[in-house]
Amino acid sequence: MVKRLGGLGRLVPPRTASGGGSRARDRLGDALFSRVAGPSGAENRARIHETPGPRWFAAEDPIRRVHGDASMFVGGLSALLLQSLHPRAMAAVEAHSGYRGDPWGRLQRTSTFLAFTTYGTAEDAQLAVDGVRAVHARISGRTPDGEPYRADDPHLLEWVHVAEVDSFLRAHQRFGARPLEAGECDGYVASAARVGHALGVVRPPRTADELAERIDAFRPELRGTDAARAAARFILLSPPLPWPARLPYAMLAAAAVAQLPDWARAPLDLPLLPRTERWCATPAGVAVTAAIRWAMHRPPPSGVE
């Protein structure tokens, strides 16, 4: 649970040589890659894309398109906000995730997990899952209200899973370069179910309609807590970023809030401003994801299968 709150696309394959006109893009793309992938990013990228062997997902599967798109930056932020509404899940994050002290490390671990499970060999995908399950098995505690929680509780894992999948899919449909058709949305949910089941979700949803039903079924359990509101303030207003990056991040954050379900706003003290979001937040999200997509563009992986 701790490592799966949120996430960002893939550790993209190496860029081919570019001319002088692309140097600014290369510098920006490399800076983004180092933030998202961490110090082992280049090594992991090579392993993911150059190791032969079967994969969990084929090159044409929708999950590869979704997790490889810049819209994941919006989806990851939105997932964090939505997931925080479950008090027991939020208590586990607050006590064990280190999201305040090491947010970049947490982002890098999450993006690496997504990359290995989406694009890596089946063996490496299973190793990534096994690592997360080992961490979950060691985490337990109580909420401030005294409710016990375990990070490997299948019910909490289901909430983390459905909130994440819903957020990634919403972001892709709103800000992705190539939104999915209806059947492809079902395909994405079904592919994500494979990862969720491997992590311990007993019966993950396999269609978009079933995903929406599961989200609705969790709503009686959800509420805003002091920890959830503090996390939202940290995520949206106090990111550990240099000043030049603050404006693009603010645009991503506004887009992440704009795509949340309306009912998720008030518990986190987030405003519902439909006109502002329609005319400002959504266009800002389109612009900044397009800029990220341009900066991190790589040729499609040759895909050693």
Rank of each mutant, 00 (worst) to 15 (best):
D226G: 13
P205S: 09
H161S: 11
A192L: 08
G41E: 04
S111Y: 02
A264R: 05
E305P: 05
A284R: 03
A17K: 14
L247H: 12
L268Y: 08
R293I: 07
E43G: 01
S18W: 06
A212T: 12
F168V: 13
W159H: 10
Y249P: 11
Q108M: 05
A232D: 11
A231N: 07
H86V: 06
P271E: 09
F57A: 03
W263I: 06
A182H: 10
V12P: 03
D186G: 13
P242G: 01
A230T: 13
I63K: 03
L236W: 08
A182S: 09
R10M: 12
L268R: 08
A217R: 10
D153V: 00
A125M: 01
P62R: 02
D216F: 00
Q108E: 14
V129H: 01
V66A: 08
A231K: 06
L114E: 02
A284D: 04
V201S: 12
R47C: 02
A232L: 10
S97I: 00
P179E: 05
G20E: 11
R246H: 12
P300W: 11
V288D: 00
L157R: 02
E50I: 02
R109Q: 03
R233S: 13
L127C: 01
D152K: 01
W159V: 04
V74Q: 12
A134L: 08
A287L: 15
A198T: 00
L28K: 03
L241W: 10
R88E: 14
L272I: 08
L85E: 01
D102F: 01
F218T: 09
L252N: 00
A137V: 08
V202Y: 00
T121Q: 09
M296A: 11
A59T: 13
T118Y: 05
E184N: 09
R194Q: 15
P283I: 11
A198K: 00
P103F: 03
E158D: 14
W56M: 07
R64M: 08
F33C: 00
W294N: 02
T225E: 06
H161R: 00
L107T: 14
S238W: 10
R150P: 10
R223Q: 13
A295K: 13
A266E: 15
D102C: 07
R265I: 04
A264W: 11
S111Q: 03
R27S: 14
V162L: 01
V129A: 03
G120E: 04
A190Y: 06
V160S: 14
R278I: 04
G101C: 02
H49S: 12
S238C: 06
L157H: 05
A125I: 00
S40Q: 15
A59P: 04
L5I: 13
E43V: 13
L169F: 11
E147M: 12
H172D: 12
Y188E: 04
P261K: 08
L28Q: 04
V74T: 13
D102A: 15
L80T: 07
A190S: 15
L211V: 09
L156Y: 08
R174G: 04
V201I: 13
A134C: 03
G41M: 09
E184S: 10
F168Y: 11
A208H: 14
V160F: 01
E221L: 14
